[in-house]
Design a protein around this nucleic acid. Structure first.
Lengths: 215, 215
DNA sequence: TAGATTGTTAATCGATTAACAATC
DNA sequence: TAGATTGTTAATCGATTAACAATC
């Protein structure tokens, strides 16, 4: 993987890499060993040119006249996406959303281990979920409890608390945040942030329905 | 709202409209009645030019030299986004994710009512959640039970079932789908589809961490 | 009127697509 | 070798940004 090329990779490209990775494993599960960009792209919902262009940001993984060896490309993508190791995830918020995320199996299967859970509710603090004790959110503060740092914080807190909790996890040294709170949060540009906002997606559907209905 | 202009509205624009709508209500909550594109944009995380351009797709909502009246713009955005009415939502899948979505308050507050729940698990079928009886998924089939159509189907099913269930809800006349299953699904282009894919978001963070770490 | 700020056009930027030489 | 398909360059497309005339 040419290190020099890793600079201007767009988030769109990265998200498509995830899609390719998934398609790859699907095809492999069907017993296919080698596939063209045409077939891979079809399964991923993109054009073959798009797929080749995306992959070319990271190296030369195919064989002209033949296509891509699925096992080898899977291995490359695992490495590029950082799925060849395990990540330490802290779940902040043990409410409905937090609980669903905690028991979400694909999470763990991809290498993401929830090793810590935090909440503010005294009724929740001290509970043990599948071996993980729910801690008071104050234990995130510098100097408090935790020694091994978290790689990723998953924010499943109310919108009103999102920015404050985000500041807290950033101060605790977390470098990546997945935010489920329906609120825009600001982080330093050394911290990676992704937001999953169900309200926005629903509103996009609502908009589309109104538009479709008007035709 | 110029009807002729509603054709080529990009999904990016629509998602930003949701952000503006949220920022608007936030500012209004702070007692502010009129705001410039500058202030609104700042709160929404975009440039003022972007905000004005987005709004201009739908009409002229501001006053030159003055800015935007927040109440009036809120009203316009509510109408554009279809939030001035209620939508009938069917939840497909009553597992962990489905259960969290069902109890997710912002859902209802924005006008989305879960009026039906479907599952395949005999242990789940017949349960009543907050007044809604969980039905067998077969009741979605044409000719079966339901009379009033659903506006939106929320898919909270395993990846392996996603396409099949999607086909089923489309056949049942649903025009908008919010898919939480980590799988690409295909729908006719008369159906609006949004996907929330936590695996992709986590993998984007994992990619970013590897990159940040490599600097 | 003078100052402020919109709505919109034109310029820029970036991402996608098409085409094809390289090559297995 | 002939056929197939990659990797990459150039062309296209669309989205964002900058600038400014219109105007409150």
């Amino acid at each position: 993987m040419p290190r020099s090329m890793r600079h201007d990779i767009s988030i769109s490209t990265v998200r498509r890499l995830s899609a390719y990775y998934r398609a790859l494993r699907e095809l492999r599960g069907e017993g296919i060993a080698v596939a063209s960009s045409q077939l891979l792209a079809e399964r991923s919902g993109v054009t073959p040119a798009q797929l080749r262009k995306d992959l070319s940001c990271f190296g030369h993984f195919g064989t002209r006249g033949r296509g891509y060896d699925l096992d080898s490309l899977t291995h490359e993508l695992r490495s590029i996406l950082g799925l060849d190791r395990r990540w330490r995830v802290g779940l902040i918020g043990a409410g409905n959303v937090g609980s669903a995320l905690f028991s979400y199996a694909p999470f763990r299967e991809q290498g993401f281990d929830v090793v810590a859970i935090y909440d503010v509710d005294p009724a929740k603090i001290g509970q043990v979920w599948d071996g993980v004790r729910i801690a008071a959110i104050d234990e995130l503060r510098p100097g408090a409890g935790r020694v091994e740092p978290l790689d990723i914080a998953v924010l499943a807190v109310p919108a009103a608390a999102a920015q404050e909790v985000s500041d807290l996890v950033v101060a605790a040294g977390v470098r990546a945040i997945l935010n489920f709170a329906p609120r825009k949060i600001s982080v330093p540009d050394t911290v990676a942030l992704r937001t999953v906002d169900m309200a926005i997606e629903l509103e996009a559907l609502s908009f589309a329905l109104r538009f479709l209905a008007g035709r």
